[in-house]
């Protein structure tokens, strides 16, 4: 049962990612990325990380994807009003060949490494209880410094993004 769910969700994520790769229209790619993120969140939950699955849905789907769609809409070309050609991405043939070769090559290499590696796990596997308590205790004790640094990083990113996106010359 779990194995069937795992295969279903991983197939969903991979098919959505392939759709992004082959689609010519970028806004369809952004919506396919939504499906890929949902599949990845389900994989997190199947691996026993319930808190990370919910975090993935809230941050990626609720925040990052909306930002990306805003970015696509704000950078549309104005000159061609043909509705067939909005958001179109032309792909050079040479770059397509190189991207395909590199992707397949790295995948074959990684697959060989994974299938030849013989992982022996010494720890006992995760139980079915929630991971929220462990994550909270670890964040507040042994990972306190990275937690504070992440807070500073988010503040700096907020100020920097607001400053960069500010309209400094209103007459283009």
């Amino acid at each position: 049962m779990e194995l069937a769910a795992f295969y279903g969700f991983s197939l969903l994520a991979i098919v959505a990612a392939l759709f992004i790769l082959f689609s010519k229209n970028l806004i369809y790619g952004a919506f396919a990325l939504f499906l890929a993120f949902l599949g990845v969140a389900a994989l997190y939950i199947l691996a026993g990380a319930d808190f990370l699955g919910v975090t993935q849905i809230m941050i990626y789907v609720g925040g990052i994807l909306v930002l990306l769609i805003f970015g696509i809409m704000l950078t549309q070309k104005k000159k061609n009003d043909d509705s067939q050609h909005h958001n179109r991405v032309e792909i050079l043939l040479s770059r397509e060949v190189w991207g395909f070769l590199l992707g397949v090559g790295i995948f074959v290499a990684l697959f060989k490494i994974i299938s030849s590696a013989n992982f022996k796990m010494i720890g006992d596997s995760i139980s079915s209880r929630s991971t929220i308590k462990t994550i909270g205790v670890e964040l507040m004790t042994s990972h306190l410094l990275p937690f504070e640094i992440a807070a500073i990083l988010l503040l700096v990113a907020l100020v920097g993004a607001a400053y960069l996106a500010m309209n400094r010359n209103p007459a283009p």
């Binding site: 991979i14 990612a17 992004i20 790619g29 994989l43």
Partner: peptide, 21 residues
């Protein structure tokens, strides 16, 4: 599965001629 997703992401990054892509 993670290796497949990583390689597809790498191919997207190389082929798309669009910053958002």
């Amino acid at each position: 599965v993670a290796a497949a997703l990583f390689c597809i992401g790498l191919a997207i990054t190389i082929t798309k001629r669009h910053f958002i892509g």
